[in-house]
Computed example of a mutant assay.
Amino acid sequence: MSTPPNTQTEQLMDAMLARLQADFSDQLMIERFPENPQQYRLNHARGAVLLAYGKSTFGHTQSTDAIVQARHLVLRLTLIFRQLNGQDGVVSYLDRLRATLTGWRPPHTDQACHPIGEQFIGHTNGLWQYAQDYATRATQLQTITDENGPLLKSTDFQEHP
């Protein structure tokens, strides 16, 4: 039995993670948000960027015979740093991350990423924590099963040249 392909959300997160790792892996730890955040330990000398799926909201259906909706996605970066200011501080990296992701168009989306919010989370045990939220838009399609016609059993979110 073959492994099913990653979902649209998983593919989007994989692409954003790869983008961040390409630009920052020599400077920071870049990884998915941990399954158990209470046990997370920052092992990097400077800081870490943790990627998580935030939420989706959906537009009105655009068709009468099948569901086709705009899907507005939010992905959250949590920054955990040892320093607040200066070249190695979290404030500097908020700007650098924003410059990297603003205007970047992930695969399987019809809108480039844009920042929608940043906020200070807190300072605990010498670590500064901030969050950045980025939005993009994709399309949500109904999987159609019609006994009188061809079946759409799954959607393929691979880009074709």
Rank of each mutant, 00 (worst) to 15 (best):
M1A: 14
T7F: 13
T9A: 12
E10T: 15
E10W: 11
Q11F: 08
Q11I: 11
D14L: 09
A15W: 03
M16H: 07
L17T: 04
L17W: 01
L20Q: 02
Q21D: 04
D23Y: 09
F24E: 02
D26P: 03
D26S: 12
D26L: 10
D26T: 14
Q27W: 07
L28Y: 01
I30W: 02
I30H: 01
E31W: 02
P34S: 00
E35C: 07
Q39N: 08
Q39F: 03
Y40I: 07
Y40R: 06
L42V: 10
N43T: 10
H44A: 07
R46D: 05
R46A: 03
G47E: 07
A48W: 04
A48D: 06
V49A: 04
L50S: 02
A52D: 12
T57E: 12
F58Q: 09
F58V: 14
T61V: 12
T61Q: 10
S63A: 15
T64E: 08
A66H: 11
V68H: 05
Q69A: 03
Q69S: 01
A70Y: 05
R71W: 02
R71L: 04
L73N: 08
L73V: 11
L73F: 05
L75R: 01
L77Q: 09
L77W: 01
T78A: 08
T78K: 10
T78Q: 13
L84Q: 10
N85S: 13
N85E: 12
G86Y: 03
G86D: 03
G86F: 04
D88S: 11
V90N: 00
V90R: 00
S92C: 07
S92P: 01
Y93M: 13
D95Q: 08
L97Y: 05
L101E: 04
T102F: 12
T102W: 08
G103I: 15
P106D: 06
P106Q: 04
P107H: 05
H108Y: 13
T109C: 06
D110V: 09
A112H: 06
A112Q: 08
A112P: 12
A112E: 11
C113A: 08
G117Y: 10
E118W: 10
Q119V: 06
I121Y: 00
I121V: 10
G122F: 02
G122S: 01
G122E: 01
T124M: 03
G126T: 06
L127E: 11
L127W: 04
Q129T: 14
Q129Y: 01
D133A: 15
Y134M: 09
A135F: 02
T136L: 12
R137S: 13
A138K: 00
A138N: 03
T143S: 10
I144M: 14
I144C: 08
I144S: 13
T145Q: 14
D146T: 09
E147R: 13
N148T: 15
G149W: 05
G149H: 11
P150Y: 09
L152A: 15
K153T: 15
K153Q: 15
S154L: 12
T155G: 05
T155A: 06
D156I: 15
Q158Y: 07
H160M: 08
H160D: 10
